[in-house]
């Protein structure tokens, strides 16, 4: 199993290189000029050219990519062209926000989605099933920004129970961290909870109908043991798969939700970096997110082996 993990991590290296290259070239294709921004509003054309030279922007795209990749191999993501701060430092400061947000969203997705799916899937066709189906449809149809607006109006402005904006690091004050996470977490997690509920429902419904579950029931096993040992474990793979897919969805939704709640996360950093054509920052964020996604996928694959012993041999 350890060997499998190492092999998977090794194959991630060329993948990351490809992603890094792709992102770099995409940035080059967007028109605009960071040198003009840096040189200031009343800069002469000569000054702008000078800045371009200083930043090495007059080299070919490939040369610039090579220089960047060389730095990355030595653990150096470079310095933001706009803020003149190390990219690793900027990402480090903001990673906590986005990770908190995604983790909270995922927690809501699993804590709400799996039980709802289980309730619905165990008795397909009953009113509980119908209710879950309606709610999940609603959850998937409502966009995060709309839900965020409603949550802010109701809970922050009218009831004054929770903050409308801002983020408090968990290390600074865990309680206030929790308060600052609830509304954005709900806004970001609702659609995922609905998705997880749907997939869990169909996985559970399918397992419940299988022969061995029917047999277990017929043999008089206690319902709790049937559900726990046979139904849930056999539905595990599809549920974990859909939950892991949520990580990517949540990362995407984080951009909007961070903006609406004025949280200084990676999403916000990405938006401002792309606007300013701050290449080192864009590259750093893309690489960080790629690493997160690859790690999550690896963990998911490893969990398959736990759910299904037959896979362990490979």
């Amino acid at each position: 199993m350890a060997g499998y993990a190492v092999r998977r991590l090794l194959t991630a290296v060329p993948l990351l290189a490809l992603i890094g290259f792709g992102a770099f070239m995409l940035t080059f294709m967007i028109p605009g000029d960071v040198a003009a921004t840096i040189a200031g509003e009343s800069a002469t054309p000569q000054r702008i050219e000078e800045v371009r030279r200083q930043l090495g922007l007059d080299d070919s795209a490939l040369t610039q990519f090579g220089r960047w990749a060389g730095g990355v191999l030595q653990g150096d993501l470079g310095t933001s062209m706009i803020h003149r701060i190390a990219v690793t430092q900027m990402i480090g400061e903001r990673l906590g926000v986005t990770v908190s947000l995604v983790a909270f969203g995922l927690l809501i997705a699993v804590l709400v989605g799996v039980p709802a799916g289980l309730v619905a899937g165990l008795r397909p066709g009953r009113w509980t099933d119908r209710l879950v189906t309606v709610l999940t449809t609603l959850g998937l149809a409502v966009p995060a920004f709309w839900l965020a607006t409603i949550l802010i109006i109701v809970f922050a402005i009218n009831l004054g129970m929770l903050p409308a904006t801002g983020f408090v690091p968990i290390t600074e004050n865990p309680l206030r961290w929790l308060e600052s996470m609830i509304l954005p977490g709900l806004a970001i997690g609702a659609a995922s909870a609905a998705d997880v509920a749907r997939q869990s429902r169909s996985a559970v419904a399918e397992t419940v109908g299988r022969d061995h579950v029917r047999t277990s029931r017929a043999m008089g096993l206690r319902p709790r043991s049937v559900v726990g040992r046979h139904v849930l474990k056999n539905s595990g793979i599809p549920i974990v798969t859909v939950a892991s897919l949520q990580v990517e969805r949540l990362l995407g939704a984080a951009v909007v939700v961070e903006l609406m709640f004025a949280m200084p996360g990676l999403g916000q950093l990405t938006v401002s970096a792309v606007r300013a054509r701050d290449i080192p920052t864009i590259q750093g964020v893309v690489l960080t997110i790629a690493v997160v996604v690859i790690l999550v996928n690896l963990l998911v694959d490893l969990s398959y082996a736990w759910f299904n012993p037959r896979l362990r041999k490979r």
Binding site: I152, G160, P163, T165, L259, F261, A262
Partner: peptide, 18 residues
């Protein structure tokens, strides 16, 4: 001084007393 790039967010924060 806080950064809030979204227009509605600033209004929300004002209303919520933040």
């Amino acid at each position: 001084f806080r950064v809030m790039s979204d227009d509605q967010t600033r209004l929300n924060a004002l209303q919520a007393g933040e």
